[in-house]
Design a protein around this nucleic acid. Structure first.
Lengths: 209, 209
DNA sequence: GCACAAATACCACTTTTGTGCTATTGCAAA
DNA sequence: TTTGCAATAGCACAAAAGTGGTATTTGTGC
């Protein structure tokens, strides 16, 4: 007596942990809706495989560039990330990298299945424009702190903006048509005022990290 | 001869400025897709009205508390905010208050119509959990460029993150319990891969300026 | 006119970085 | 099994950055 599945979605799973991977395999094997067409430990396994495009991809990988690679291999398959990161520091980047949704690792099996189905049925979707807006909004937080702005002179800000480009003293000097020693002097004064001891720290402090 | 509208969405508009409100009224009156079912100057006008739930709400109000009130009155209607120059923290807060999207005030009429349609048709939506994550992630926002991500090894990324703090070799070495020479080697390899010649340039390239 | 800050400049010195070599170990893919 | 890369480490030298001192010019405010 065979059991026929009603709505069957193909799913690719990339999960490093062996036990967890097996658990997920069982979950999908016993579900009526999903059929695993690819089960991988790491992204590079996926790279060298010739797995056909699944309807959806589920992965525990949270490294941004690896997520990007998965997205490159299956550009049209929605990508769901399993994460234990409660603070969600990386979540923005994960969405930016192409994730469609995410699931907390400790969630119940039904949460996994329901979230995946929701994503597939397009009930939840985040538009690129919204993501862009959010990222843009966040990056424009990188404005100088008021205190820092107040204590630096105009010229010091000029210098700082050139420091931000990674230019060496010599080029800053040439750029502003002043002597290298003057640039050094300005830098020294900047570090002194911001109470830091090198370029990177100064930039972090001035531009808000 | 009457003109029948094809897809007609109901829309509520809350805009303080009289001229602008009239402009929007005209825009929607002449559009085929929207029918204004509520036109208000302020939020308290909306409160005392008995306007039925519209398909979508458009408002110029950017005060977080008032936005929250609108959201309370029409909990199921997506809310689109018209904003002049709001950047940074504020936009994230607007999303947190329940906004589905926003439009810059100076935008072309078609931008208004298209954005509203996008919100309605694409089910553009951000879940609360994502908003919380975004708020939590805040300033610790580093978004490496995909190309840069692909070529750096895990260890090199470790190093880069410490470089970003402005730490000298010595402290990076101590931090990772490896020798200074190894740190120098990693840095050299990083610069080589990113095709830059110092820390600041590397950080700009990797973290997207 | 004088005081003061900002911008300029030079010198000397130390520390940190950046670059070019070589070389070993371990792991994973071909 | 061999090949290749990641990670480790050492050494030497050149280049740049950072720190201290002093000093001149210029413009603004009192």
């Amino acid at each position: 007596m065979t059991q026929s599945k009603i709505t069957e979605y193909t799913i690719a799973v990339i999960v490093p942990d062996a036990d967890f991977r097996e658990t997920l395999k069982m979950l999908f094997d016993y579900s009526f809706e999903f059929e695993i067409t690819g089960l991988f430990k790491k992204v590079n396994e996926l790279v060298s495989s010739k797995t056909p495009n699944p309807d959806i991809v589920l992965t525990e990988i949270t490294d941004i560039d690896e997520v990007a690679i998965i997205k490159k291999i299956f550009p049209s398959s929605p990508l769901v990330i399993i994460t234990g990161d409660e603070t969600g520091e990386r979540i923005v980047q994960l969405f930016a990298a192409g994730a469609a949704h995410y699931i907390f690792k400790g969630s119940e099996p039904t949460v996994y299945l329901n979230t995946l189905k929701e994503v597939l049925e397009e009930k939840v979707k985040i538009s690129d424009s919204v993501i862009k807006s959010l990222l843009a909004a966040k990056s424009s937080d990188n404005k100088p702190t008021p205190e820092a702005l107040a204590i630096l002179t105009l010229r010091e800000k000029d210098i700082l903006n050139l420091l931000a480009k990674g230019l060496p003293y010599k080029e800053i000097a040439h750029n502003l048509s002043i002597s290298i020693d003057t640039v050094r002097r300005h830098c020294f004064n900047i570090y002194d005022k911001l109470q830091v001891s090198n370029r990177t720290e100064a930039l972090n402090k001035y531009f808000g990290k």
